[in-house]
Nucleic acid binder design. Structure first.
Lengths: 338, 338
DNA sequence: CGCACTTCTTTGATCGATCAAATAGGCACA
DNA sequence: TGTGCCTATTTGATCGATCAAAGAAGTGCG
């Protein structure tokens, strides 16, 4: 590997000075067109590429986003993060940024990582993916004035509208409304919901979509709805529990809408293909089983994350395309019909 | 965010010079114990952390590994990359390195990325995950003397032993041997193999494991084996094809060993749970269905990748623990029995 | 023609670390 | 006591870029 050309090399090749080359790269508009072209020609001829670390040292900006790679959750939806990461990496690259991965076993370790990555100028912003109520990481980031965006709402009431906490999320309630309306339109009447125990923001949000739709569109009583509201812990070994639960439901419901594809798989194993089942996340499992599923629009989520981050960078400017709330963005999921 | 302390700050706090602080951090053994302790105390007291970009500028090392995030393949095994990435990120962090993600739509674009990332000192090595025979990326990396390791063997004959091409792979042949022996031990006799068409190195390797075991352990003729050797394109929409294929097999085989979990799912949908089925990759799908599956030991793979990379860094030293071939490593998979 | 005023370009300093070479300190031995 | 040698520490230069401020060229107007 021979020595890389530097700004100085380009400068002498183009017959100008270092700073002019730097200007061509960073603030092209202040350079006279003729000079700019000469410099650009020299850059191309020498295959010059700026040394990212040198620039970072001077500007104190890394143009890199840190993303934690969660320990694999063993859920079928594991690939969700994968897809989100891909969408994020792609968009990030388009915006001229990079994605740096890190791992951490617990919150304390992750905060330690924040410090290391920020102090070392490795990253200048974070994207958090698994947030929960009372997350200490978020307090740390806000206190240390580190820009960040979470994929997922903070479910605490006050937090949700906190302008310091930027978030993007998928409207799960809307997703289950779509799912429920779809099976109702297909002739179902007694539609069961298979979800997680109350208490998780995400799960409750999805349940609410089912419940609201059922209340509005059917004449089922509260008691009947309660009987159709099935709950199981999310745990791979629990799929058998879910299977038993669904099978025990008597009479068999006309359809089942689920809070996740892994629950949908359990329902499918219990009921076979006689009853329409709708999953959530549109994972390969749903595809393989031929089940309808609610697809999170991860491209849009990634786009939103980046918009908010760049907005935050450039002085809290925020969304461009007429979004009402520039600090938060709720993406509408789509129902994949099969 | 107040200004971060620098080596100079630490130096004056400890009453020594810059370089001594640097020595404590990089070559502690040349510093007298008493001095070292004083410096370490000052580092802790000031919460000093080295500025990574400054160090990289000087050393011309980024201590960062570039990994391409593949476009999601829609296979059930998508989560495999996810798990590998996680294992890699974790090990990488332990070795004091970082993982930088990038994406690229095709090989040319990826080579363009190589150039950008190397010239910018963003990364100093790459890990490639989806390699194929005659991969131009590999030629580029070797030509430009950029260290890299691939997860996956190059299936060209000459390439496989090329000392310039470091690789780690999982012994799929052994995996299918384990799978086949397991079902044979369970009393099966006519064991079918469900895999991809001949021509893919990985698929052929797995098939060979099944075939060799069947030949050695059963008295089935070549013709009988050929009839049990089922082939289908890997494509999500093809699972129905696989299902038909398996169902058409008459008489029903005693067991089916598969080249992937998504094929195992197809077999399961065709045969129900009357016949033992073994998948490959131990994805959540296999777990949810209660199927046996061959688990790639991604931790070991990640460890191998890092060993080779660090070995290459430090002058082609290579493996430590008595591995025969210091440039290549074949990890033995494990059968998860359910 | 000359002075003020832009606009574009150059020069010197700087970011925070490490490298290379020089210096100071300690110890043994003649 | 002085010389030589080894080890521990300090000093000056450097990596490649950007920032800040100074300098040069070009324009308008009295």
């Amino acid at each position: 590997m021979r020595r890389q050309p530097t700004v100085t090399d380009v400068a002498s090749a183009a017959g100008v000075s270092r700073q002019t080359v730097s200007n061509v790269l960073n603030t092209p508009h202040i350079v006279r067109a003729e000079t700019r072209e000469r410099v650009e020609e020299a850059i191309a001829r020498l295959h010059y590429r700026p040394h990212a670390s040198a620039r970072r040292l001077r500007t104190r900006l890394s143009e890199t986003i840190g993303v934690r790679l969660d320990p694999v959750t063993d859920g079928i939806s594991g690939s969700l993060l994968d897809r989100f990461l891909h969408a994020l990496a792609e968009r990030t690259a388009k915006a001229g940024f990079r994605v740096l991965l890190y791992t951490a076993d617990d919150e304390a370790a992750e905060i330690e990582q924040f410090g290391r990555l920020i102090d070392g100028a490795d990253v200048d912003a974070f994207v958090l993916t698994s947030t929960h109520h009372g997350d200490t990481r978020i307090d740390w980031l806000i206190e240390h004035e580190v820009p960040f965006v979470t994929f997922g709402r903070p479910w605490g009431v006050a937090d949700m509208t906190d302008p310091e906490h930027l978030w993007v999320d998928v409207d799960g309630r809307h997703g289950l409304t779509l799912a429920t309306e779809h099976v109702l339109a297909g002739g179902a009447h007694r539609v069961a919901f298979l979800g997680w125990p109350a208490g998780s923001g995400t799960g409750d949000d999805r349940r609410a979509g089912w419940r609201a739709t059922m209340t509005a569109r059917t004449d089922l009583t509260e008691a009947e709805l309660a009987a159709l509201d099935l709950t199981v812990d999310e745990d791979p070994t629990d799929s058998s529990v879910a299977t038993r639960l669904v099978a025990a439901l008597d009479p068999t419901p006309d359809a089942v809408v689920c809070a996740s594809d892994s629950l949908a798989l359990a329902a499918r194993l219990a009921l076979g293909d006689r009853v329409p089942i709708v999953g959530y996340d549109d994972t390969p499992v749903a595809r393989a089983l031929g089940l309808c599923s609610v697809a999170q629009q991860l491209d849009e989520v990634a786009e939103g994350v980046l918009d908010l981050l760049i907005g935050a960078h450039r002085g809290k400017a925020g969304g461009t395309d007429g979004v009402d709330d520039p600090q938060h963005r709720l993406v509408k999921p789509r129902l994949v019909v099969r």
